[in-house]
């Protein structure tokens, strides 16, 4: 028995007509396979360098710390003792350097994107740098950093912006698409939030926070 909502004629017509919906081109098998191989090869390089994973994890932990610190921090008490072992100081330095590099590079790249938007064309090196940062961002999203409710949206926005940038071909006449990406950047205040999250660390030796110094 045919359900009252069923209409075989309509269903057949719909099936036929829907074949035009997002009709795929022939599968670019070789192209995708090369990308799979390249990604896995690069990942193996990372895996044989434990310090890189450690640095990324450290960056993620630091960013959480910075975020939490900025939202919960109170001015240090004048008489609060400074307790910092040599190990924790070394860890702080590594954390700060790794996080600063990631956040600063992303900030610089997005600022540069705005400049390149005027020309309506991206440099191939720029797209390569964006792809590199996209990988790092995804690692951050897979790290404990993504558990932070305020940092996670920033990382997700960065992932989306970088993904959109990496999809732009490095050729002229892309201004409209670049304008749309920039519009998204502005609407979600991505650069402002990124700059707020970037730790203000001088280029020289990383200072250890001393008592009473804000």
């Amino acid at each position: 028995m045919i359900d009252q909502h069923e209409d075989p004629k309509f269903e057949q017509w719909l099936k036929d007509a829907a074949q035009s919906y997002n009709a795929p081109r022939p599968t670019p098998r070789l192209e995708i396979w090369k990308r799979i191989e390249e990604t896995r090869r690069n990942r193996h390089v990372i895996e044989i360098r434990p310090w890189m994973r450690w640095a990324l994890a450290a960056a993620a932990i630091l960013v959480i710390g910075i975020g939490i610190g900025r939202w919960t921090a109170h001015p240090p008490r004048a008489n609060a003792p400074v307790v910092a072992s040599a190990d924790s100081v070394r860890s702080d330095v590594a954390y700060q350097v790794a996080a600063q590099q990631y956040l600063t590079r992303t900030e610089v790249l997005l600022t540069d994107f705005r400049a390149q938007r005027v020309r309506g064309q991206l440099d191939p090196q720029f797209v390569a740098a964006a792809r590199d940062l996209l990988t790092t961002t995804r690692l951050m999203l897979d790290s404990p950093a993504a558990n932070d409710p305020q940092l996670q949206p920033l990382l997700e926005d960065l992932e989306l912006v970088l993904a959109q940038i990496t999809q732009l071909p490095a050729e002229p006449g892309r201004k409209n698409e670049m304008d749309l990406i920039n519009q998204g950047l502005n609407q979600r205040s991505v650069l402002t939030r990124l700059r707020t999250a970037t730790p203000a660390i001088p280029a020289g030796p990383v200072p250890v926070r001393a008592q009473g110094v804000s």
Binding site: E156, E159, L160, Q164, Q183, G184
Partner: peptide, 9 residues
């Protein structure tokens, strides 16, 4: 993820 970003547009 893409949809969320493009929602405003």
């Amino acid at each position: 993820k893409m949809k969320r970003f493009r929602q405003r547009e």
